[in-house]
Design a protein around this nucleic acid. Structure first.
Lengths: 131, 131
DNA sequence: CGCTTCTTGGCAATGATTGTCAACATCGAA
DNA sequence: TTCGATGTTGACAATCATTGCCAAGAAGCG
């Protein structure tokens, strides 16, 4: 993989800005199309690079669709949190669950696991898409 | 995709048997190699078919590595449960968390989501691999 | 045993993601 | 502001898991 882009470029701004305006998880390919539609075209490879750089920097969250495609979304906080995602429109809500955090750490410790992390995502159909 | 295999064949048995003997999540490719090593060679395409059929039948659980590769594991019960997985050796422990189930349903309901599902996996390093 | 139907497996096709590299833009220095 | 070293871009090729395809082989039934 190429080095993570750090310089201020039009492409970097375009990707970050788009992510901040859109309110659900989007794939790199979708972001690429959206940018093209807006006229602020950015190469697909470049979209991948920025989206991954932002993910590593903790500024966007990544999760995977059932088919394995990676989807990204800008999140309000760098804090650890989870998502409630609409499986139709991709819209999502950030949620926190202190109790869950504690529970996972507990369970892991009980089984002698260290360096524990976890993933938790909730999928459903939102009010809009249900009608 | 082809129809799910239902007939009793050597290949079907080999895949199911291997999954029952191995105690961690394995990718289709790994299973394919393991079978080859055992002499009970099965075509890669066929491994994919059986592993997916078993997953649909609820007899194996599927999850995704960070790189998006799908990994499979035979599970003791058809009940809903989660996993504590060693990120080094793939060994895993089935865990249940009734409190978590309730919490996710709650959160989803509060936000007007219906048809709710969730994924929760815990990753860590197991005692063996830590040393 | 013979037939019908399902299963197998090698290979091509797909689709997301990553590697490559020449052309181009940025930013600090002069 | 201009120059140059260095970071970025993007078209294209390459990778890799997974799926589609289809002729040859096996299972189950009579």
């Amino acid at each position: 993989m190429s080095p993570a882009p750090a310089r201020a470029t039009r492409q970097r701004a375009a990707v970050a800005d788009l992510l901040s305006r859109v309110d659900g998880f989007r794939s790199a390919q979708e972001l690429h199309e959206l940018l093209r539609d807006e006229g602020a075209s950015v190469g697909l490879t470049t979209v991948y690079r920025h989206v991954q750089a932002l993910a590593e920097a903790g500024q966007v969250d990544v999760l995977r669709h059932e088919d394995g495609e990676a989807v990204y979304r800008a999140c309000g906080t760098g804090e650890h949190h989870h998502h409630l995602v609409c499986r139709d429109c991709g819209r999502s809500v950030e949620v926190e669950g202190p109790a869950v955090e504690a529970w996972t750490d507990d369970v892991a410790a009980q089984h002698g696991f260290i360096d524990v992390q976890h993933t938790l995502e909730i999928f459903g159909t939102c009010r809009n898409c249900a009608s």
